[in-house]
Structures are given as C-alpha cells and as structure tokens.
Design a binder for these strands. Structure first.
Length: 426
RNA sequence: GGUGGGGUACCGAAGUGGCCAACCGGGGCAGACUGUAAAUCUGCUGUCUCUGACUUCCUUGGUUCGAAUCCAAGCCCCACCA
C-alpha cells in the first residue's frame, strides 16, 4: 500500500492541489512537508490530532517534517472558519505557548531522530524584524488583490451581516502564503498539510511560489477533512470545552474519558484516524463492536492508545484507576492521598474546618464554589442529583466529622460524572 | 448625514399597563431507562433567610395605586438611502 493509499484509508485526505495520482507519486519520494499550529493556548488540543497524525504518518514514511508554529500569525488571527474576529494574543503569551506545543508534538513526532529529525520553526522569527515599509515593498508587492478577495474565508466575512473583517485579519493570508514561500526557499519544503479549512491559506502559498518563482516549481497542498462526530459536532470538544494535551488543563482522567465516551458510530473511524493500529486489528475491533457493543472494546483501545501516547504509562494508569473508582461505586478503602492523586485535576476548594462542620450540605455546595449559587445547589439536591462521597444524598443535613474521609476530604458529585473535591483545613 | 426598525434571562423569540421572574424553542443541569452509547420520557433552568420575599426585561428620569409594557432624554445595534 502506498503512503497516499494509507492516508486515504485512514480518512486523512480531503483534497490536494494536484490530482490524486500525481500526489500519490510525489509521496513516494522523500519530501519536506510542513503544517502549521496556532499557538492560541499553552498546549495543543485534541483538535490538533488530525494534523499531528498525518505528519506522523509522513515522518514514518521517511518525509522530512516541519512543524510551523504560528508565532506571528497567531498574533494576527486566522479568519478561516470564523464568523467574528479572534482575540489577539500578546507577544508573551505566544512565546509561552510555543514551549508547550513543542513538548506536545514531541510525543508524536521525532525531533531528535538522528536520520530524519522533525523541525520546529516559528514564523515569528522571519517576521519580527520587518517594519511596515520594507514589508509592503518586499512582500506586499508579491500579492494580488483579486485572489485575496476571492478567498472563501474573506468572502464569508465580507458578506456576513454583522461585524466585518479588519485589515489585520485580511493580511493573514499574506503571512500564511509567505510562510510557504519562505520554507520553500529555506528548506526546499514542497508540500503543505492542513485541514480543509486551510485550503485558502495553502493555495495562497502555492500561488505565490508559482507566480514569483515559476509554475514549474513542484509545490503542493494536501488537506484532510475536519473531523466531526456522528452528531455533527466538531471533534475535540467536550461540553464546549476543548480537550487539551496538557494535564494541568485536562486531567488524565478527563482525557481518557473523552475518548472512552466516543460514540459507537465514530469509534472505528477514530481508530483509523488517531491510532496506528493495523487495519486487521481495526477490523477485529469493528467485529467486536458489532457483536458486543456494550463492551465498548474499540473505545477502550482508542482511549488507551491516545492516553498512553500523550501521558505515558503513568498517566494512563491514573486515568484507568480513577475510572475504575468513579464508575465502580464506593470509596471503600481509599485514603485521602489516593483520592488526592485520582482527583488531582478535578475542581476543588479548601475551606476552614469550622466552615464545614455543622454547616448544612446546601451551604457547603455554594460556599465551596461547586455550585454557582445556593439556589442552584438546592435544585441539584431536590432533583436528586447530588452525591456525597459517592452516596446519593436526598435532602439537606448538617455535616459532621464522620463525613470527612481521613478527617479532611469530602468528595462531592453532581450527576454521574461531575466531581468536586473539598478539603478541610485546620 | 437622512429615513425607518430594534435593544427581554446562555441563545433565539413571545409579551405592548395589573393574571409576569416573564409563553415557547434551542442549549444547559438533573432524574428514569441504558452499555460511562444513541434514542426516548420527566423535572429544573434570576437570587435569597424558599409554600414566601427580593432584584430583573439597554441606561437614567418621569406618568401611574401599579410599568418589560406609557412618556422624555441618552447609549448601542440593524436596514435602506447619501
């Protein structure tokens, strides 16, 4: 199977700037390939996995990988797929984010491979010293208005009813296009990868290179589809919150659970996209899903593979242990340190002991910050959705020292999976 | 700049003097059923000292026994024209 066929079978191909047969042939020889990452957060998100996996496939096949972090473009904001303008990041934020992103990427891409190391570049490096006039003279002159205005991302914003596009955002495609030009000149990079929403930005680059250096220059773009779940929701969000790779932002447990909760209809496709499991194994899991859907074998394999890749054996083990405790039932035999470890990243609060003992559970729910207001707490309690130390609580009552695990912890839970740890301080 | 329309809870959207903490839909939160699935059904969704009280319907003043609803001024948004 050729690399291109592999990518196709893994749902990682949407479109390319040349025809597919040509692309298939191109990928047979080692190329230098790049894809961009927005440094909008201090770490990457599950939504970045598709890009990462595609790059990883290419690196495994012997291509040289460049991960471009958009230090400069991140300060501008990509208008693609957005109805409104992004909040601009500060310079310090972007620099902080770079470090985290490299760390995340290194879980999937080899940056220190002696034969074929991946590269990490930051486009801030080649834009930072530009001042306005040289930029306009040297780079601005390379672009033509008509194609820029014709871009889908621009048209959508210009015709949008509210909130029009700023010049700053409009300039984004110049930077993005010039990135490709720069990487071609510097690293002989000839292929750019991106999500299908990046089409306009990718062609801005290939067009630029063709126009300035000649149509014979073999630069191309390859896009992969944006991943949505069977309900049409964009992949990588859980209840509106992004799933981050950084355990401080998304706990091992939440990360693992996110994949474990994958819909049946998505599980097999996700295995193809997000893991390197061979097709035979995936077929087995598909059969397992069909025969015993309640076992959720594919989901378990998926969650395990990704948690291990991102968080290592240690993170996986914590996530699994936590899952067992949280879905197994009682907290029998668990000590406060156990709970602290399992719930390390779960929302928590510390209150003085005298603010807990003798106070009603209702007051505690609100005063700890677990529930937004006392009314909300009351509704939760009346609706039968509250558990204390994994035991359903039906009505209000005052707390006694007996409720404290190891004399210092309270485990509150709303519904089935929303936990909150309350510590008593002396 | 001119003319017209509009600002109601997380979003959309009713309500145009008392029956309004405000119909309805979406979303969200719980409950039942389940496989930590989907679908479905049920309840809740301003705050509190919670069978009642309090603060809300852009802002500020006013009319009135009583205003989200009427009046005035201001702020903001939209459409068409220039």
């Amino acid at each position: 199977m050729t690399l291109f066929q592999t990518l196709k079978s893994r749902h990682l191909v949407e479109a390319c700037t040349c025809d597919e047969a040509q692309m298939e042939k191109l990928l047979e020889k080692p190329l230098t390939v790049y894809a961009g990452f927005d440094p909008t957060a201090e770490c990457l998100q599950a939504g970045n996995f598709v890009t990462i996996m595609t790059l990883a496939h290419l690196q495994r096949a012997g291509h040289r990988i460049i991960a471009l972090v958009g230090g400069a473009t991140g300060m501008i904001g990509d208008p693609s797929g957005r109805a409104t303008e992004r909040t601009l990041l500060t310079e310090e934020q972007v620099h902080r984010n770079l470090e985290g992103i490299k760390e995340n990427l290194s879980r999937f891409l080899k940056f220190d491979d002696p034969l074929n190391p991946a590269l990490l570049v930051n486009n801030y490096d080649w834009y930072k010293d530009y001042t306005l006039i040289p930029f306009l003279r040297q780079i601005g002159t390379l672009f033509r208005m008509k194609p820029m205005l014709a871009k889908d991302s621009v048209q959508k914003r210009l015709t949008a009813e509210q909130d029009s596009m700023t010049f700053t955002e409009f300039t984004y495609q110049i930077l993005q296009g010039y990135d490709f030009y720069h990487l071609y000149k510097t690293y002989a990079c000839t292929l750019q990868l991106g999500g299908s929403d990046q089409w306009g930005n990718i062609t801005a680059g290939t067009d630029l290179i063709h126009r300035t250096l000649g149509n014979h220059i073999p630069v191309n773009g390859l896009t992969f589809p944006l991943v949505c779940d069977a309900n049409g929701q964009k992949f990588g969000k859980s209840a509106g919150n992004a799933i981050y790779l950084n355990p401080e932002k998304t706990s091992y447990y939440d990360f693992y659970q996110f994949f474990l909760r994958t819909l049946d209809a998505d599980a097999i496709r996700y295995l193809r996209i997000f893991t390197f499991l061979p097709e035979e194994r995936i077929q087995e899991l598909a059969a397992s899903l069909a025969a015993h859907p309640e076992q959720r074998e594919p989901q378990k394999v998926l969650a395990e593979a990704l948690t291990r890749a991102v968080h290592g054996e240690k993170g996986l083990s914590i996530a699994q242990k936590a899952s067992a405790v949280l879905f197994g039932g009682t907290l029998e035999g668990l000590t406060a340190p156990d709970l602290e470890a399992i719930f390390a990243n779960i929302p928590s609060a510390t209150l003085p002991r005298q603010a807990i003992i003798g106070h009603s559970i209702l007051d505690i729910l609100a005063s700890s910050g677990f529930q937004k207001s006392k009314s909300e707490a009351r509704r939760l309690l009346q609706g039968g959705g509250l558990s204390l130390n994994n035991q359903r609580v039906g009505e209000d009552f005052p707390l006694t020292p007996a409720h404290l695990i190891d004399n210092r912890l309270l485990l509150l839970r709303s519904g089935k999976k929303s936990y909150f740890l309350l510590r008593a301080a002396d």
